[in-house]
């Protein structure tokens, strides 16, 4: 059996206990919540922390509450299954519920957490492999090596952000609360990312994501998530896109956003989406042609690479298709866009 490397497990019961452990052990420690990302990565020899701090027994980090102002507070160790099935999430942030419902397979959603999906390590076909495999390859830029096998001569790791919920949270304008020994700091999720596949987050590895806050959306909020993958379950996205579409009282688009994932190291917001869609009313020809323009924009801006498994050319070809279908689904109040 593929074995986990040896480590010591710590199981704090409070956020303060967890941050103290992270401060104490510094770079020797890593946090784990659901373990659906970290344990396979550790079995692959990608991380060898001496201490693993499990957040499973931190009761305060779990659960979904609705604030008086209508915003959602999602504890970071709330499972993806809970988030997908949560009535408040389905009602006020449908795209988030949809995205959570399409992460991996049923058991992994029961184990995997809301925070874990945000903090998911980037993925690459040259990286998510066993130590034997990577050693035979001669390693890669992201781990133990100096060469990028995706971009010839590439100096910057281009492993792909592959978290289904991240683009959704960006489209919803969510903020993240990070705890450390220094206290709590809040980060708008859109500002979390950097274009570095080795570590694509502007956060210390020792910081603990404790809570996700989704602000109350506009009255006419619509949202949908579209996910391309080979199988109807288990697989990571080959491409994902999250749509926010706020309809005004007149039924026309008042605000919109489109964020894509499984392309490069960070989730990618497509530019100029709102200006193309605002004022267009779903069901009209003007709306349909605006949607097509957005799809073309996405095609121009989103350029899948040979980082994750799957034909990059094909993935690119599917960008406008999934973008268009997801925009239309959002307009109809439907979704997710997924082949099964």
């Amino acid at each position: 059996m593929l074995r986990l490397p040896k480590f010591r497990l710590e199981e704090p019961t409070t956020v303060e206990g967890a941050t103290a452990l992270m401060a104490e052990h510094g770079e020797d420690a890593m946090v784990v919540a659901g373990g659906t990302d970290l344990w396979p990565n550790m079995k692959h020899g990608l991380f060898e922390p001496k201490v693993v701090v499990s957040l499973k027994r931190v009761e305060a980090m779990r659960g979904i509450t609705v604030d008086e102002d209508g915003s959602l507070r999602i504890g970071a160790t709330t499972t993806l299954a809970e988030m997908a099935q949560s009535a408040p999430v389905q009602a006020s942030a449908p795209a988030l519920a949809q995205a959570a419902s399409l992460v991996a397979g049923p058991q992994l959603r029961t184990m995997g957490t809301a925070g874990g999906n945000v903090m998911l390590d980037t993925r690459c076909q040259w990286y998510n492999q066993t130590h034997f495999w990577r050693k035979s390859l001669g390693y890669c830029l992201k781990k133990d090596g100096t060469v990028c096998h995706v971009v010839a001569g590439g100096r910057k790791c281009v492993a792909a952000a592959s978290n289904d919920t991240a683009p959704t949270l960006m489209s919803l304008g969510a903020t993240l609360a990070f705890a450390s020994a220094d206290g709590i700091r809040e980060v708008p999720v859109g500002e979390l990312w950097k274009a570095d596949g080795i570590w694509n987050k502007k956060a210390e590895r020792s910081e603990i994501l404790t809570e996700i806050r989704v602000p109350k959306q506009a009255a006419g909020h619509r949202g949908a998530y579209g996910k391309l993958r080979d199988r109807g379950s288990i697989d990571y996205p080959l491409f994902g896109c999250a749509v926010r579409m706020d309809l005004g009282e007149d039924g026309a688009v008042a605000g919109a956003d489109l964020v894509c994932v499984a392309l490069v190291a960070r989730p990618l917001r497509i530019k100029r989406v709102e200006e193309l869609l605002v004022g267009k009313t779903p069901g009209t020809e003007a709306f349909d042609s605006a949607v097509q323009e957005v799809a073309d924009l996405a095609y121009a801006q989103a350029k899948p690479m040979d980082n994750i498994p799957g034909d990059a050319e094909y993935r690119r070809e599917l960008v406008p298709v999934y973008v268009r279908r997801t925009l239309q689904a959002a307009a109809r109040g439907e979704g997710p866009v997924h082949h099964v």
Binding site: M1, L9, G35, T36, K56, Q107, L108, T110, M111
Partner: peptide, 12 residues
Amino acid sequence: KPVLACLTLAAE
């Protein structure tokens, strides 16, 4: 609830 025992620590 169904979970994967290969990705669950015994201690957890």
